[in-house]
């Protein structure tokens, strides 16, 4: 199995809290989805309408509530972002981590499209999850970019080797 360089020390301490916050928000939205009575009303606040968003056709993906899918996603990311996972130099783990971050931001872009273009309404709770997912994406990309550079910095180049002969 190919091994990678170690991740920067800040990686788990920045990414893990983000994943946990995302998990908490998703769990809340999942509970609301299944338990809150649908006392439906039109808000006078215009576009901000959580009920409209969370009860829309776009709130389910292949029959699975998006909130529940988000909770599962953040649970998986939490495991991938534990300090022990970051210490692992396994390439498949890294690929899952990066792939998860990219998949997460892809889902956010679809949901933002659904809110603005299809529903013309936004849900503040969902927006909070989107922001956390975006921050997580940036942090994972930064950590991966950083970690590769640490190895490259320490590896002598042919020019260095030639100059030291």
């Amino acid at each position: 199995m190919a091994e990678l360089s170690s991740a920067p020390r800040w990686a788990p301490w920045v990414t893990l809290p983000l994943a946990v916050i995302g998990l908490a928000l998703s769990v809340y939205l999942t509970v609301v989805h299944y338990t809150e009575p649908t006392a439906l009303a039109c808000p006078a606040t215009g576009a901000i309408d959580c009920t409209k968003v969370t009860t829309s056709a776009q709130s389910s993906l292949f029959g699975v509530p998006v909130a529940l899918a988000g909770a599962v996603y953040f649970l998986a990311m939490t495991l991938l972002l534990l300090p022990a996972s970051w210490r692992s130099r396994s390439r498949p783990v890294m690929l899952l981590r990066v792939g998860g971050a990219v998949a997460g931001i892809g889902m956010v872009l679809w949901l933002v499209y659904a809110e603005f273009v299809i529903l013309h309404a936004i849900c503040l709770w969902c927006t909070a999850v989107h922001l956390v997912t975006f921050a997580l994406f940036v942090a994972v990309v930064a950590a991966v970019a950083w970690g590769g550079d640490v190895a490259d910095e320490n590896r002598p180049t042919p020019a260095m080797a030639a100059s030291e002969r």
Binding site: L109, E115, F116, V117, F134, F137, A145, D149, E153
Partner: peptide, 29 residues
Amino acid sequence: RERRRRIVVIASSIVTVLAVVAVIVVVGT
């Protein structure tokens, strides 16, 4: 050079996502 590469990777990721979001918001509104 490596620091510059890191910054390019991170910045381009952020800019790409934000650009897509901006297009969606403009189209939607």
